[in-house]
Amino acid sequence: MKQAVLQSGKGIETLEIREVAMPQPGPGEALVRLQAATLNFRDLIMAKGLIPGIAKEPELVPLSCAAGMVEAVGDGVTRVKAGDRVTPQFTIGWITGAQPTPTMLGGSIDGVAQQYAIYPAESLVLNPDELGDLEAATLACAALTSWSALTGFRPTGPGDWILAHGTGGVSIAALQFAKAMGAQVIVTSSSDAKLSRARSLGADVTVNYRTTPNWAAAIRDAIGGAKITNVIDTVGATQFADNASLLVEGGQLSAIGMLGSEFSWTRQDPRVDLKPIGVGNRDQHEAMLAFIVAHRIKPVVDVVYDLDRIRDAFQMLESGQFFGKVGVNLL
């Protein structure tokens, strides 16, 4: 089988494709034929060493989000069977409640940029027929992070204002989920073309932060004050003060990303309910899937590369010239 490998922290130019033996499942495990994967910004973090010490050393099979089909199961497996369409959890073993382990695909353990892999059967989520493999492959990290931000602490509902920064996988999933929940959504981007696409998905207010440097004031004028109940913060601490100024008293700042600076996790403001978001567990993933099916949500994948061109996929991710998700065909 084919498998992508990189040298952890040494750059995307170290990516290579290898031929390796197909693994076999042991007790409690399932062999999955992975068919599609998608990239997240964290994949650049692992490849480039942006947060030292969190990637498996010295080599790593990258990527954390995939979908495929169960090929075979080991002894004692009842959760899945051969032929089931599945997605491996982002955090292996996180079934319910608080996170018990930092065992994350494409980070502390090998990821999904390979054609076959072994997983604990209990860490597999069954995919609905309504979603294709590529669509299902968008969900384990980015979409589940958005789902957790919108439902895990302060449930989103009709009339709420949600601010989502950027048009990558987390923010576009947040836009789709929040609109289905009845909320009003603001999206920021440096691209008018991307903002147009966001409006086609239901964005109520869009602001180009490049042509409108005082984007916070523009948002406040557009919505009539500080009315935002939840900020999907993919950028980080550099925008903390502006985000805080837009929130209602006690509004939630969902600290998710570091696209522009360090995370916002340690910042404090008495007006802000800051919530670090750590993706989610299997129960939350299944609840998200049910919501997606009920509301007929279609995840957005902008461009897809074959596994042999995974370096090109990383370069597209790094460029930021995409909308939603960058995909990889593993077939």
Results as ranks from 00 to 15, higher is better:
37 A>R: 00
37 A>W: 00
38 T>H: 07
39 L>Y: 02
39 L>Q: 04
40 N>S: 10
40 N>P: 06
40 N>A: 07
40 N>K: 06
41 F>M: 08
42 R>V: 03
42 R>C: 05
42 R>Y: 02
43 D>A: 09
43 D>Y: 10
43 D>E: 11
44 L>V: 09
45 I>H: 09
45 I>Q: 04
45 I>R: 12
46 M>W: 00
46 M>L: 09
46 M>I: 11
46 M>S: 11
47 A>W: 00
47 A>V: 06
47 A>K: 02
47 A>G: 09
48 K>N: 15
48 K>C: 13
48 K>V: 04
48 K>I: 04
49 G>T: 12
49 G>C: 07
49 G>Q: 12
50 L>E: 13
50 L>C: 12
51 I>S: 07
52 P>K: 13
52 P>V: 14
52 P>R: 14
52 P>C: 13
53 G>D: 14
53 G>L: 13
55 A>N: 10
55 A>D: 07
55 A>G: 13
55 A>S: 15
56 K>C: 12
56 K>T: 08
56 K>N: 03
56 K>E: 10
56 K>W: 03
56 K>V: 14
57 E>M: 13
57 E>G: 02
57 E>D: 04
57 E>P: 00
57 E>Y: 04
58 P>K: 08
58 P>L: 08
58 P>A: 10
58 P>Q: 08
59 E>G: 03
59 E>Q: 12
60 L>H: 04
60 L>C: 08
61 V>Y: 00
61 V>S: 04
61 V>G: 03
61 V>R: 02
62 P>M: 07
62 P>S: 11
63 L>H: 07
63 L>R: 04
64 S>L: 07
64 S>E: 01
64 S>M: 02
64 S>R: 00
64 S>I: 08
65 C>G: 09
65 C>L: 09
66 A>D: 01
66 A>G: 12
67 A>L: 03
67 A>E: 00
68 G>K: 02
68 G>N: 05
68 G>C: 11
68 G>A: 11
69 M>S: 15
69 M>K: 12
70 V>W: 03
70 V>F: 02
70 V>G: 01
70 V>I: 14
70 V>M: 11
70 V>R: 01
71 E>H: 15
71 E>M: 10
71 E>Y: 12
71 E>R: 14
71 E>I: 09
72 A>Y: 03
72 A>M: 06
72 A>G: 08
72 A>D: 14
72 A>E: 15
72 A>R: 12
73 V>R: 01
73 V>L: 11
73 V>Q: 03
73 V>T: 15
74 G>A: 08
74 G>Q: 09
75 D>V: 07
75 D>K: 13
75 D>T: 13
76 G>T: 10
76 G>W: 09
76 G>N: 11
76 G>Y: 07
77 V>M: 10
77 V>C: 12
77 V>A: 04
77 V>K: 07
77 V>F: 06
